[in-house]
Nucleic acid binder design. Structure first.
Lengths: 105, 105
DNA sequence: AACCGTTATATCGGTAGCCGATATAATATA
DNA sequence: TATATTATATCGGCTACCGATATAACGGTT
């Protein structure tokens, strides 16, 4: 019941896949998207891609020109997960601000 | 460089300890604080308390009336971590909203 | 064609955090 | 005194992340 929190890595991977991208492109996009703060390790990225495929939150697109590249895209379910995460994040901030103000300075 | 993200459990534990509380009180407070969404398992709670003590983000208060209860309180460092987390969370939301709007419907 | 740096995917072992179960004990209540 | 609740602690298992390493394809240069 509690645990539908997304990790930062998964969150940014899903955001990146609002456009079609291959793994390495996700890596670069996440770093840019987060103003250089979040750098995905290779193990994190390709591990997460596999679990997200299994969950059906992202899907693999058919072949590209470059035989190395495998492109992915977020699914409708994946988008719903991002929306739910945005709500959860907003709750964290609201609760955090409230508590910090009550016991303030 | 990337990883100063707090887990949801640690975040709510730190918020709870803006007031003096013992472990079990934290459990109840976190559940209430999160509108019943986050329920800490015992292993999570007492494990997190130990790592937070080691990091100096919380401190143990001297004895209470009830010989069972051990009370804790957030430290200045802990408060700084919560403030940093609030900024990180706000960035996640800002980035998320921007991306979701750009590729909108 | 041969070389080389970059791009790209994949796997592995280690570590940390969360969970649920279990154990144990002190306190409060009936 | 018996029982339920409160309270802390530990354990094994699972998942996620990390950094290192391996492998290969592509692009550009000579």
């Amino acid at each position: 019941m509690p645990n539908f929190a997304l990790t930062e890595a998964v969150y940014y991977i899903l955001l990146s896949l609002m456009q079609p991208l291959h793994g390495y492109g996700i890596m670069q996009n996440v770093e840019q998207l987060s103003n250089g703060r979040v750098r995905l390790a290779a193990g994190t990225l390709y591990g997460a891609i596999n679990t997200l495929l299994e969950k059906g939150w992202i899907t693999a697109l058919p072949g590209s020109t470059d035989s190395r590249k495998k492109e992915y895209l977020i699914t409708d379910i994946g988008k719903q997960m991002v929306q739910a995460e945005l709500i959860r994040l907003q709750e964290l901030i609201t609760n955090g601000n409230r508590i910090m103000e009550v016991h303030n300075q």
